[in-house]
Design a protein around this nucleic acid. Structure first.
Lengths: 162, 162
DNA sequence: CAATACATTCAGTCCATATTGAACGAATAA
DNA sequence: TTATTCGTTCAATATGGACTGAATGTATTG
């Protein structure tokens, strides 16, 4: 096997990772970056990564900090070198637990603010015509369903599964 | 409370649902549609929905069938009427279990095809220069990590959590 | 039969946002 | 000090894919 074949097999996964993150609405580069570091025996600098992926340094900077937030990569210091180097956190489940799940959780929380708002809007009104009242009751029961699901979901997210 | 206030509180949630699905890379209308039906006391036709959301009938048709695939809405027949009517499946967890999780699972599976491919590429080569060999070994160990995570993940997806 | 009333399709348009790259600031080196 | 060498920012651009709406197909009605 030539070195070229090895690089090719790595690039194959890099590309797939990019497609995957793109498919989940996270952009292509973030997945490619993680895969690149995951298959790098040595830490890489921003310029290294930009060069390998043929993308701008600005993109690498932005995306690598996103990955850092998730705990998917970490910065490593190399003595006598001013550049920032990064390596991948290779324990997937640590990334999922400490990075991805909280990320999803936060997104959901922010959308649930609307539910509380609507609940207040509905509860606030007391003087109702009879037709409106039955519709308000219906809405109220629907909101109950959402809150029930919310509780189940957040309990699930807190479960120590791994 | 006026009827207007009720509609407003519904639209508030419809909008939030649209933002949420958009945030997850699923498009705005699919979330708005589900929320609209979720808060409708009666089944709605395609024209009803297009009218309420001010979007094209084509969009409604496409998105409602996506929701149908997920089991998030179901078609209901109203006698003596040629239109298709839809109502929401209001049990969130049923939707998550039978619609959303399999959807995610399929996405992940398709990206894991690349892993097998790379595994084969690496295992196929036997005559290696020594430098290449150690890199090949490194890649091989990384692939092991991915497959380990894959197994944990698919086990998790099959867990009867609710 | 023709006319109507519906849902679906898909080429074209449009929009959200991912990505770029020049400008900037900070830190180090000379 | 000035000149480099980094990383970051953000206005501008590029791109993927969501959305539109006219055309199409199909079933029903008259």
């Amino acid at each position: 096997m030539s070195d070229k074949k090895l690089i090719q097999s790595r690039d194959n996964i890099v590309e797939a990772a990019g497609r995957t993150t793109q498919g989940f609405g996270l952009g292509r580069i973030i997945g490619q970056l993680y895969a690149l570091l995951f298959f790098s025996p040595e830490p890489m600098s921003l310029d290294d990564m930009a060069g390998e992926l043929k993308v701008s340094k600005g993109s690498v900077s932005t995306n690598i900090r996103e990955l850092e937030k998730w705990g998917a990569v970490r910065r490593v210091w190399i003595k006598g070198d001013r550049k920032d180097y990064y390596e991948a956190e290779v324990e997937f489940f640590r990334v999922i637990k400490s990075g991805i799940l909280p990320f999803i959780s936060r997104k959901l929380d922010s959308s649930l603010a609307a539910v509380s708002e609507s609940r207040e809007l509905i509860n606030a009104g007391d003087q109702l015509k009879s037709g409106d009242k039955s519709l308000a009751d219906f809405y109220s029961r629907r909101l109950d369903l959402i809150e029930k699901a919310q509780k189940k979901l957040s309990a699930l997210f807190k479960l120590p599964l791994w």
